[in-house]
Amino acid sequence: MKKSVLIGPAIVILIWFLISNLNIVDKFFLPDPISTFKELFSLIFNGTILPDMVLTLERTISAFIIALIIGLPLGLILGSSRKLYESFEFVIDFFRSIPATAMFPLFLLIFGIEDKSKIGVAAFASVLIILFNTAYGVIHAKKSRALAAKLMGASKIQIFRFIYFWESLPQTFIGLRSALSMSLIIIVVTEMFIGTYAGLGRKIIDFQITYNITSLYAVILLTGILGYLINFIFIYTEKKLIHWSGK
């Protein structure tokens, strides 16, 4: 990792430290970074936050996998025909324009107050992201390689399997990465609502209600770190799998 990567976070923490210690914002509402990080380490190492973290991750990954199973093949099918995509373009854009959390009450009614509704609403938002990006990747794939394969005598199915699928992968992965981040965001938000006994979102609300502000910041920080790590692992995997991207 380049040393320069640490400069940005160091500056942000320094500004945070100054604002808090110079009392620019009331210390009760903005505890200093040292006590926040201390609280974060104590929450992690005494194990109190780990079950919440695991549960949030489980829900996020479940939502993502469901979205992947539905969104990827649908995106490939819709992308394979411009006419087909155009027929569904309005529907996709319409649902993409609805904030996913606005659908949560509906999902609560359909799936009940337990995990299914949270996972369902996160999967719903992620499906649309994966579907849109995959279809876009196929539609805008370079035609020259497909043309070359056609001249080699490839059938339509072979062109799709050997060319378009691979051509669309860089764009598909952009969709998958955004979908995973979206799943985490929605899971954490929905955990703040009714029917949840554990999860990072639940903990944030609990600490807010009890005015345990340092712990509140610590969990927010932890959620951010988790999101960043998921993204980091995904980018690393993407670089290994789609080694040709941008070359």
């Binding site: 370079k142 020259s144 390689r145 043309l147 070359a148 394969a149 001249l151 080699m152 005598g153 490839a154 072979q158 050997f162 060319i163 691979w166 992968l169 789609i242 080694h243 040709w244 070359k247």
Partner: peptide
């Protein structure tokens, strides 16, 4: 067979050279 002027855009970057050369026979 047809060798395009834009040879860069007709090779498959996700396949290695062996797989690229073998591609017409695989098809």
């Amino acid at each position: 067979s047809y060798i395009f002027q834009s040879y860069r855009d007709s090779l498959l970057p996700w396949k290695n050279i062996h797989e690229n050369i073998a591609f017409p026979l695989k098809l």
